[in-house]
């Protein structure tokens, strides 16, 4: 089975996030970008599948900045081919709509049996990329997948629903799956193997084609959580507190 994994880079939340002067974007000047955690789970799931069923794994990301190390680490983990999409300055971030369009362009020349990506990313929590891409490619999409299995020669994706419910969804033909968690936590490969991958493997750089996007969801304003009025502590004896409460209820119109 040939699997493609799509990786998006997101701001590292260990850093203090700041909003830039436009008030609609994060200030990315000192931002550290890291691969989206669920995309790393998608990669792990892909490698687990390859180990079970054979085939190849291709990891694709967009040149957000320092992405090479992540790609070489993917090689050290067992990825066969790594692709970096270049051609534009993506360092200010890419909308999910555009990202889906860019991935569509690359996937046109890359036939595969399964496309995995994280079901959502911490930067927007929209979970759009997988679904938009599936729509563009005319493939089925299942999100919140926690396990992929082969039963009677058919792929079965386990989707996690709220409230502890699971559904096993049979998939025929190629599909896009949004991974919620790999069956095992993403593996750690030793640094020497990453270094070896840096020496031996090469990153396949591909220019992004014309990515036509019909509609995007622009962010109008971004803000830190705003603190409302502070809580008021009512202190004193039980009688005092009761009196104060009554007074408050009357003021706020709860009691006549």
């Amino acid at each position: 089975m040939n699997i493609v994994v799509l990786i998006k880079f997101v701001p590292d939340l260990v850093e203090d996030l700041e909003i830039d002067a436009s008030t609609s974007l994060l200030d990315r000047s000192f931002l550290r970008l890291i691969p989206n955690e669920l995309d790393e789970h998608a990669l792990e799931e892909a490698i687990l599948l390859k180990e079970r069923l054979g085939g190849t794994v291709t990891a694709i990301t967009v040149d957000f900045g320092d992405v090479d190390e992540t790609l070489f680490t993917a090689v050290a983990k067992g990825t066969d081919r790594v692709v970096k999409i270049t051609g534009e300055d993506f360092s200010q971030g890419v909308s999910n709509e555009k990202l889906a369009a860019i991935f569509q362009g690359v996937l046109a020349d890359l036939p595969c049996d399964l496309i995995l990506t994280g079901t959502q990313a911490v930067d927007d929590l929209d979970g759009f990329v997988g679904a938009l891409l599936a729509e563009r490619l005319g493939l089925p999409y299942v999100g919140y997948v926690t396990k992929i299995d082969v039963q009677d020669g058919k792929l079965v994706a386990r989707k996690e629903y709220p409230g502890g419910l699971n559904a096993d969804i049979e998939i025929s033909g190629p599909a896009v799956l949004g991974i919620q968690a790999a069956e095992k936590p993403p593996r750690y490969v030793v640094t020497s193997k990453v270094m070896e991958a840096m020496k031996k493997a090469s990153i396949d750089e591909q220019e992004a084609g014309e990515a036509s996007v019909e509609a995007e969801l622009p962010v109008q304003r971004m803000s830190l959580p705003e603190t409302g009025a502070r809580a008021e502590m009512i202190e004193g004896s039980a009688a005092d507190v009761a009196a104060a409460l009554l007074k408050l209820f009357r003021e706020r119109g709860v009691l006549a």
């Binding site: 030793v190 640094t191 020497s192 193997k193 990453v194 270094m195």
Partner: peptide
Amino acid sequence: GEEGLFEL
């Protein structure tokens, strides 16, 4: 046991 990381 992570020699490569130690070196890094």
